[in-house]
């Protein structure tokens, strides 16, 4: 198996890069979308709340694959065409946005009420309270969930292979049709994903420990 991987290391690495592009794109895009959605979700304006809730529930209760097919195969009916890569990033962004919105919301609501009261008691205006008091604590609270979401996104990016995106899984599948060394290829592929997840988790953990140590 190892010599197989080494022989095709270039292709695997190219696929890995695409996987990363998809995952990072979906996390960044999804974060923007998620922040906006979370704000709407907690807003006093009824229609905004309904809109954001509908979006969150619709995405979280339907398969990502169907969302992807809708973007890639359904939108062309309206003249909106995406490349496989573009469609994958877009679909995963929309998918991530819903999950991240809930993570952000939970983070915001996890900040103890006493913090808001202390800020109010010294007369801190709303914006300063949000930026200086609430957000830092909320971000610290959701840090593990964010890491997990990132890892899940990396794993989920594999569905891009089903519409032809040449990310890591697709590279392996192509290789399979060329060499038919299925067991080795799939084993190597699994281990690659496991390795990527482990590296992300470990790096995140160390960063998290450093952050924790500052405050405790």
């Amino acid at each position: 198996m190892i010599e197989l991987v080494i022989a095709h290391i270039g292709e695997f690495f190219a696929g890995f890069k695409i996987t990363l592009v998809i995952a990072l794109g979906a996390m960044l895009g999804g974060s923007l979308l998620g922040v906006l959605t979370a704000i709407f979700r907690l807003s006093h304006v009824g229609p905004l709340r309904v809109l954001s809730l509908s979006y969150i529930e619709l995405i979280r209760n339907t398969p990502g694959l169907v969302q992807l097919l809708l973007v890639y195969l359904g939108l062309p009916e309206f003249g909106i065409r995406f490349s496989p890569l573009g469609a994958t990033i877009l679909a995963l962004t929309i998918n991530n946005g819903a999950y991240l919105a809930e993570i952000f919301r939970a983070g915001l609501q996890s900040v103890p009420k006493g913090q808001l009261e202390a800020a109010a008691a010294i007369g801190l205006p709303r914006t300063a309270t949000l930026i200086d008091v609430v957000l830092p604590q909320a971000l610290l609270a959701i840090y593990p969930a964010l890491t997990n979401q990132f890892i899940q996104t990396v794993l989920f990016s594999s569905i891009g292979a089903l519409i032809g995106t040449v990310e890591l899984t697709q590279v392996a599948l192509i290789l399979n049709t060329q060499t038919y060394r299925t067991i080795e290829i799939l084993a190597a592929l699994s281990l690659m994903y496991v390795g990527i997840s482990a590296v992300i988790a470990s790096a995140s953990h160390r960063l998290g420990v450093r952050l924790e140590r500052r405050y405790h």
Binding site: P112, G114, Q115, E117, A118, A119, A120, A121, I122, G123, P125, R126, D132, V133, P136, Q137, L140, Y215
Partner: peptide, 24 residues
């Protein structure tokens, strides 16, 4: 209004049972 309330709160200091210091 918010501005008036802010002025009141600048004139009144409060100490809470659970301290409520900003941990970060």
């Amino acid at each position: 209004t918010g501005v008036q309330l802010s002025r009141v709160r600048s004139a009144v200091g409060m100490v809470f049972q659970l301290f409520n210091l900003f941990p970060h």
